[in-house]
Amino acid sequence: MPEPHRPSSFLSLAVIAAVVGAIAAAFAYTAGWFSPQRLTPDKLVAAFAPPTGPALGHRRNHAKGICFTGTFEANGAGTELSKALAFASGQYPVVGRFNLGTADPDAADATVRVRGLGLQITTPDGQVWRSAMIDPPFFPVSTPQAFYQLLLASGSKDPDAMKKFAAANPEFAKFGDWAGSAPWTGSYAEEPYNSLNSFVFIDKSGAERVVRWSLKPAAQPVTVSQDELKKRGPNFLEEDITQRVAVAPQRWTMVVQVAGPGDPTADPSKAWPADRRSVEVGTLTVAKIEPERDGPCRDLNFDPTILPAGIRTSDDPFPAARSSAYAKSYDLRTAEYKDYPHTEPGAAP
């Protein structure tokens, strides 16, 4: 009986090597090992670090902050837009963090232009809504890639780097104008905080609307020059908010703006026209301030893609990029646990 055709062992081994090699190569490609140009969260997060290196154990951006707790009291008007329980009339506990847009946890308050607020609203159905907002009325750039280029340019030794960046990203000029001319205030309580990114609200019928939201302060903003603020000491914002809240709770109204047809939902550098439908959905009340060390906000990642059912991400590319980078920042700082000053120096043991 003739031997049936049989590949040689050598050929068989070559086939095995080829199959295993091809799967391994596909894996390496997926991991980005053949794509040095890919913008990874590692690169984006590393770009925030000053030349002296990142502040170990701290958030890689918005590194300076102070915790608060309080409530979000929904007035029920938001239920027209989203089925999330956070919009049904009622009071829901919040944890949050006032912060400064800097990679330096010890930055002097008067040196940082952008102020922010991280917020977590928890509803009795167990759903969690996290958000991280800032006080400029629009974002400096249109895309995460441009934001990365901005970080590289601002950290560059090339004196023309920022000029080149501004030329390549014309939307940045508007932010420059804001940073140069918008009034400064002496308090976190007097700032508005804006989502800037758009999200999709889903109502009970399943209808979807693209929205942005803002927290409008109840406190009347009082303009103070930056030079004046510099005289107030490096932590005047934290001292101010601690004193104000000790005297009386501080409040913000949450306003949801609904995009009109053709509004740029994917570009946070472009504000929508002021006449778009706006709905006041409730009030944030900040009732207690605690230092970040050992405070309730310290261990929270205010990832803006942590959303309850009834809210989802839109075509805005930033929330995904932020989620990816925030997770990286969280992974780094938790691994640097020992470097974070967990207890006040000099505190009783």
Binding site: F27, T30, A31, G32, R38, L39, T40, P41, L44, P144, T305, T313, P317, P319, A320, A321, S323, S324, A325
Partner: peptide, 13 residues
Amino acid sequence: GVGMVSTIAPKYL
């Protein structure tokens, strides 16, 4: 897994 930790693009989510 290896794909998602290497990107900040919308596909990350």
